[in-house]
Amino acid sequence: MANEERSNWRRRLRIPKSANKGDVITIKTMAEHVMEPGVRRDQETGVIYPKKIIDHVYVRFNGKQVFKSQWYSGVSANPFMSFKLKVDTSGLIEVEWVDDYGQSSFKRDTIDVYDKNGKIIYPFEIDTPDSKNKVM
């Protein structure tokens, strides 16, 4: 099981497509990973499977790190984690899983945030003729 070579380990990230300003959304993440604790033995040969776990998870919103977690061998295989995030502007949510061996993989998704009038809020300011006049 541990020595099984696979390349298509899936990473999952589920967030709502849209939200209102100031809402607290839940982010659900799941990573397919063996999370080998390094103490398990092969029943026939008695060889110990080497330790291989995901030890860091970083979450970034519009490039800024908003949440970090450090895992040890006690987290179960195919680790699932869900947590909250407060959104004020629409933008990009990025989750990165970093392995014991330094291999990293990420998944990202965007969310649209609307204000009371139903207008979308962008994470940057858009130049209009009026805003140019204000600066001048």
Partner: peptide, 15 residues
């Protein structure tokens, strides 16, 4: 190994 996980929060994670 008694330690299982550490979670680092910021004020931006609403809850």
């Amino acid at each position: 190994f008694p330690e299982i996980a550490k979670f680092y929060f910021t004020p931006q994670s609403g809850e």
